[in-house]
């Protein structure tokens, strides 16, 4: 509803020509004013619509910015996690290279820290297993509660079974 007031025509009976002339003048003036009022009302409505659109655009921009920020933070976190994983894995590999005991390998502090990274470590472990096979089978077994290898598997056969599993589950491409 328009907020602009319109002039209503008078109901009084007119007697003299002057009165009628004046009345026509007034009526003509009134129609002009009413047209102007309609025009203002239309412009106000247009401005309101425009303002609403601008408001929506601003809101969308804010949301996009927030999403981008979250995306950057997630990416940064993933990068930090990857960096931490590789540092722990490289040290572990060097420090357990000459032990034959898998028990000693998995009780190494770095191995335990990798397991403590939780499910975020699964993809990293599988990538590492693919890049440079090593004794990550226990960590994968613990983190996934699965073991895709057959009971008679040799170490390398078990590695292959885990890589296939990783592809099926979407961890590896």
């Amino acid at each position: 509803m328009s907020a602009v007031l319109k002039f209503a025509p008078t109901k009084r009976r007119l007697t003299t020509p002057r009165e009628r002339w004046l009345q026509e003048l007034i009526n003509s003036e009134r129609e002009d004013r009413n047209r102007e009022a309609d025009e203002y009302a239309r412009r106000i409505a247009d401005l309101q619509t425009h303002a609403r659109k601008l408001g929506q655009i601003a809101l969308n921009l804010q949301e996009a910015q927030a999403r981008a920020q979250v995306g950057v933070e997630v990416k940064e976190k993933a990068g930090e996690l990857r960096q931490k994983f590789h540092r722990l894995a490289d040290e572990w590999r060097k420090e357990t290279k000459h032990t034959s005991s898998v028990e000693e390998m998995v009780l190494h502090p770095n191995y335990l820290k990798i397991i403590a990274m939780g499910k975020d470590a699964i993809a990293l472990l599988l990538e590492e297993l693919e890049r440079k096979p090593d004794h990550w089978l226990v960590a994968l077994h613990v983190l996934t509660d699965e073991d895709p290898a057959s009971p008679e598997s040799t170490f390398y056969e078990a590695v292959q079974a885990w890589l296939e599993w990783g592809k099926q589950k979407g961890y590896l491409t």
Binding site: S100, S101, V102, L137, F155, A161
Partner: peptide, 21 residues
């Protein structure tokens, strides 16, 4: 084969007896 008794039964290891390490 990698000869190792595995307490957690992770596959990929071989140990011919049921005693521990």
């Amino acid at each position: 084969q990698y000869w190792q008794y595995m307490r957690g039964r992770t596959k990929g290891y071989y140990w011919p007896i049921k005693w521990n390490n």
